[in-house]
Amino acid sequence: MTHLASICLLLLKIHTMKSCAGVSLKTQELYALVFVTRYLDLFSNFVSMYNTIMKIIFLSSTFGIIWYMRGHKLVRQSYDKEQDTFRHYFLVIPCMVLALVIHSKFTLLEVLWTFSIYLEAVAILPQLVLLQRTRNIDNLTGNYIFCLGAYRALYLLNWIYRYFMEKNYHAQWITWMAGMIQTAIYADFFYYYFKSWKKNERLKLPA
């Protein structure tokens, strides 16, 4: 739900302000790759109606955001292209290699799924780099990144709960480790987010 909220916040910003200033297209494209490689089992592995609907929402909304940033006349003009310089392959290639080395089963779908877990952990980096370069971070963008970080942190709590409460729950070290790293990457952002919230000031990251 926090993940869904983050997407709603981002779409709200882009749609109402007709601006994507401070939003990293690189991160959005990495997320698109994360969802495509993770949800390849959309039609073959039915978990629940909720699960299927959420997968479709995450996939379509991410491509919708990318369309807005690349294709929409007004939104496209507000994109900070010169500041959003992070290279995709810096993250994609190491994650691919890691997925080929560390996985639970050597099948195409499983390796791609593992790749998506690793890539998700670091997909926020271009956004955080761009954020540091952006002087005026608007509230919606700040809250968007907060929700995006919070959902993985909440997963950590959920994993602990499931580990103790569910009978047939198996340890999933790959997901846990990646989730911990993903949350740790946000630690610095969370610190400044709460600091500005407490002081009732605009969010600002130190250079």
């Binding site: 993940h3 089992d41 592995n45 978990v47 699960n51 959420m54 997968k55 995450f58 639970s104 799924w113 997963y155 499931r162 569910e166 047939n168 729950y169 198996h170 999933q172 997901t175």
Partner: peptide, 10 residues
């Protein structure tokens, strides 16, 4: 067989 807790998350 479906492994509980492996691919049932988003």
């Amino acid at each position: 067989a479906q492994r509980t807790g492996s691919h049932d998350e988003l």
